[in-house]
Write a protein that binds this DNA or RNA. Structure first.
Lengths: 192, 192
DNA sequence: GACATACTAGGATGCACGTCCTAAATTAAC
DNA sequence: GTTAATTTAGGACGTGCATCCTAGTATGTC
């Protein structure tokens, strides 16, 4: 890959994304990122004027990734309930990372709230995106009235699972809860 | 209240506890705490040698608070299921603060993991304490085999609710989920 | 090949932080 | 009341950080 300006920008965002996830936003310094990317600290300024700018770029990139993931589940011709199952399954697929670093969306949101950071709302769009998508799936399942409530319920359970799996460094707990969440989904769909 | 050494120590811990909760551990500096307590920054060192020492003291204080709370629920002559309901009800009682700052235990744990802080395990004892207590209640309800699983499930749901209520700054969501959690508890107890 | 533009490197700046030190003030001990 | 111990205040130190600046290097244009 040629090192165009755009490529380096992308590389910076990728590296920052990972570091923010692993070590948190505050703990990640310009030096850490530039070192990991392999460019000089001074040169960094040419690509991103402020740290906040990198944060926004990272959030943006995550938005794209989530959107792509959701789109993919839609185009695969699955039934709405299977799509929801795809969502639940992320916990299993990412169980090793979740055990180590928690949920990338949840931990970032939590950190930004404490920082009173102005990008808090921007980061929350990640939650909102998934929430809306889940709601759509429940509507497709004929649960129009409770759709948002069910979406929030699933989101909250996922967050709780990630938080505890992270705190206790326990993967097995994720497996267990995912199973229960799938059972919950089945009985919810069947209900009247 | 006389300003004995012990009193000032207690005051520092109280203030630090609150600031760690509101702004996070990293964001809370020696100056911030000493200013809030009303003592000079230099004098601080006389009471606590390092920042980590304050953290441990705060965790210790929280352990005491949680233990006292659990003890109280035990001595009030309630049935185990009512005790569990007490636990669920903390979410409602603290809903305003949770909306603003999340769960004090969960957010601290999340932060310390990202910091790779050595007091991580110490902070986790707060979770372990509650987990064990909940497990005991489920055992008392004759659910010996699934007791720990049920305890973890409740803990996870509480965490998830706190995280999302905090992210979306939504109290109403807490009420809604608490209601559902109580229903879940009832049906779980009744089950066979 | 000359010149403008794009890019890079690394030092300078100012600030906030945890920690340390020391001298003064207060309190306790006899 | 003098002396010893405790407590306090505030400055000093070293570090790491985000940000800024400037001089150098590469790259493209004509």
């Amino acid at each position: 890959m040629v090192d165009t300006k755009e490529n380096i920008r992308e590389k910076i965002i990728t590296v920052a994304d990972d570091l923010f996830y692993r070590n948190g936003y505050v703990q990640t310094s310009f030096s850490t990122i530039s070192e990991a990317v392999g460019i000089s600290r001074g040169n960094f300024y040419y690509h991103f004027k402020t740290k906040d700018e990198i944060l926004d770029a990272v959030i943006n990139r995550r938005m794209g990734n989530v959107q792509r993931m959701l789109d993919q589940w839609e185009t695969e011709g699955k039934k709405p309930e299977d799509r929801i199952r795809c969502f639940i399954n992320i916990l299993l697929m990412n169980k090793v990372k979740i055990k180590q670093f928690g949920c990338p969306i949840g931990t970032l949101s939590t950190e930004l709230v404490k920082l009173e950071h102005e990008s808090q709302e921007e980061a929350n769009k990640l939650f909102t995106l998934i929430r809306g998508w889940l709601r759509d799936q429940f509507i497709a399942l004929g649960k129009k009235k409770e759709a948002d409530e069910l979406a929030m319920h699933l989101l909250a359970r996922s967050q709780g699972i990630a938080t505890l799996a992270n705190a206790f460094h326990d993967e097995k707990f994720i497996k267990n809860e995912v199973k229960q969440m799938n059972e919950w989904l089945e009985s919810t769909i069947k209900k009247q």
